[in-house]
Design a protein around this nucleic acid. Structure first.
Lengths: 214, 214
DNA sequence: GTTTGTGAAGGATTTCACAGCA
DNA sequence: TGCTGTGAAATCCTTCACAAAC
């Protein structure tokens, strides 16, 4: 996918792969709530996600005992628990760096805010763009990154600059104290331990699919 | 990730995880070629990608013996071999289904064509959009999907419709003979064995990062 | 009867460590 | 000497299978 790119694991007690599946569970639970259901079994969850019921039960068992034998899981309760575990029971402030075509698409994407991810700042290195307002965001110079990150309590950096600027921007984000980066640039950046980078790279996803259809 | 979402594995002799890393190697090798280098060691590749040299050597050993002891790998040769293994030594035709905001961003993204992925057709269910030309593509009705997929030899479907239409569109793609789908809709679709789906979902990526910074 | 939670088993992946070659 | 290729060891992850709970 795009693709995930990370090596940091703050808590080896819970495998990274498990953490990455929890949002999938949250998503299915939300769908079931909207469909008016109350209770769901690991069997049902598994068939929605094309995975085994045992894996779902094992994943959940890292965090507690959420189900009732003979019945299954209370959907609303489980969704709430998982959201709390993932830190989704609050909002998160993000900044987008790079306001070209991609950055504009990202700030106007309507899928972030409903999930609690608020893009509060936009940055660019190009003086022709700095100062303009795009999707209600006043574009700032990258030199103001550290200042704005502090003032706005930004915890997530979204990198949408061209590839040749990406490592520099990521260095600047790390310098500014950001520990979570969503990277749209097609490279694997170097980051210190403790900083998590997830890559969004459709080309990489396509390039591994072709192996199976070639 | 974005995020990857797949369960099909046509050749269990080579683990899926290995296949997914090969495009990363290709990308780094391309960078090194552009930087004028001739030879690279597993140590160097590993430090670029923040992974162990042993893993890289083991991954490559599934496909052959590409290196020279005491020296490393010839960059151009290794890149060529990996591209051939992945099926990247040819072009691939793709169709985008859903020409709203996201679909327009995808067809105008300049990163696909240089890597050999050509978007040759665009579809939408909305009659107000069908017939319009967007980025040189005449938008067709979804009812023409099967016909156009055959005529244009399209092998990859890129799904950018709203969530409530996504499963239906994916069913139609499978029906039309497509076995590789890049899915931008935020759901885990049901697909038969033999069809590969990779999901591009920035929200899912963010939702697992917050666990580590909460 | 149904379904969870979980040790134990099994399988997959990564890392080690070193023989062999340039 | 330097670095690959690879069996063997170690680690990690998934699945099994069943006692316990409803």
């Amino acid at each position: 996918m795009s693709t995930t790119n990370n090596s940091y694991n703050s808590d080896p007690l819970v495998p990274e792969v498990v953490i990455q599946r929890l949002p999938l569970y949250v998503r299915v639970l939300t769908q079931f709530t909207n469909a008016g259901e109350d209770v769901i079994s690991s069997e049902q969850l598994g068939s929605m996600l094309q995975m085994t019921p045992a894996q779902i039960r094992k994943d959940l068992s890292y965090f507690g005992r959420f189900g009732k034998q003979g019945r299954g899981y209370d959907i609303a309760m489980l969704e709430g628990q998982l959201r709390a575990i993932l830190g989704l029971d609050r909002t998160w402030n993000a900044a987008v760096i790079g306001m070209g075509r991609l950055g504009r698409a990202v700030v106007s994407y309507p899928g972030f805010a409903p999930e609690g991810f608020n893009i509060l700042a936009a940055f660019d290195s190009n003086d022709d763009i700095v100062g303009k307002t795009i999707s209600d965001l006043k574009v700032e110079s990258i030199s103001r990154l550290t200042k704005s990150v502090k003032e706005l309590e930004i915890k997530i950096g979204i990198v949408t600059v061209p590839i040749d600027q990406a490592q520099g921007v990521i260095d600047a984000l790390v310098e500014a104290g950001i520990r979570s980066i969503l990277n749209y640039a097609p490279l694997s950046p170097q980051v210190p331990d403790g900083v998590i980078v997830r890559g969004i790279d459709p080309v990489l996803s396509l390039q591994s699919m072709t192996y199976y259809i070639r």
